[in-house]
């Protein structure tokens, strides 16, 4: 089985030498292609920080990070940008929709960034909108949606380009049971059809139980589940 992602002694510290605050200590784990991995842990334990590093939107202070076998911790900012654009789907803890874009445009945007043809975009977005129960919302702006609807748009935006790695920070936080199920269902389909791997930070037992494996973070340390 191929390794999608592998972390080797990753640590993250904020602040300067004498006033340093270490929020991740010596984290090592790997994620296989097609695997669902849950990260759980209390608030402030470093879940978002870890996911940001895995999603290439933050830098580790020490340690190595390999994505599909490539040492991505060495990449410069434009290479990281290209890598995020092509290979990573990010579901943010707070939906982070673009306020001036409609639901449709928010979801279509990652495809456009990857120069997908307009006809293909139209087809894919329509399909995903239906699957997420958002078709009647497609021309609305984010402020016109409920929190749960926004979160679903955020999930759709991360999944639309069928990325190899999806990093999801509390994807079910503002979703009811039915929509959380639908979201997980979509992730599973993506996983089974395209072999996408999922790294999900969550407190939600529904999500955690759905995953193949879980890791627990406590005060920045990875705790052995045993």
């Amino acid at each position: 089985m191929t390794t999608r992602l592998s972390l080797n002694a990753i640590s993250k510290a904020y602040g300067k030498a004498d006033n340093q605050m270490v929020v991740l200590h010596d984290i090592s784990f790997s994620l296989n292609a097609g695997e669902f991995l849950a990260i759980e842990g209390p608030s402030g334990s470093g879940k978002s920080t870890l996911l940001n590093i895995c999603g290439l939107i933050d830098h580790a202070t020490h340690g190595d990070y390999y994505l599909n076998g490539a040492a991505v911790s060495q990449l410069n900012s434009s290479e990281r940008c290209a890598c995020r654009r092509r290979e990573i789907g990010f579901i943010f803890q707070r939906h982070q929709l673009i306020p001036a874009m409609t639901v449709y445009d928010n979801i279509a945007y990652p495809l456009q960034l990857n120069n997908v043809k307009a006809k293909q975009i139209k087809h894919d977005v329509a399909q995903l909108l239906t699957a997420m129960g958002l078709e009647h919302r497609c021309n609305h702006l984010p402020y016109q949606l409920s929190g749960g609807e926004r979160q679903r748009v955020g999930i759709a935006r991360a999944l639309i380009k069928r990325p190899q790695l999806v990093v999801a920070d509390e994807p079910s936080a503002s979703l009811d049971h039915r929509h959380a199920q639908a979201g997980l269902q979509l992730m599973r389909e993506l996983n089974q059809t395209y072999g996408a791997s999922f790294l999900i930070a969550s407190h939600d037992p529904l999500v955690i139980n759905h995953c193949d494996r879980k890791l627990t973070l406590l005060d920045g340390y990875l705790v052995d589940p045993a």
């Binding site: 939107i57 940008c81 654009r85 092509r86 990573i88 943010f92 982070q96 960034l113």
Partner: peptide, 10 residues
């Protein structure tokens, strides 16, 4: 918003 655009690979 700018950070989000950048995170998406803009």
């Amino acid at each position: 918003e700018i950070a989000t655009l950048s995170a998406l690979g803009t």
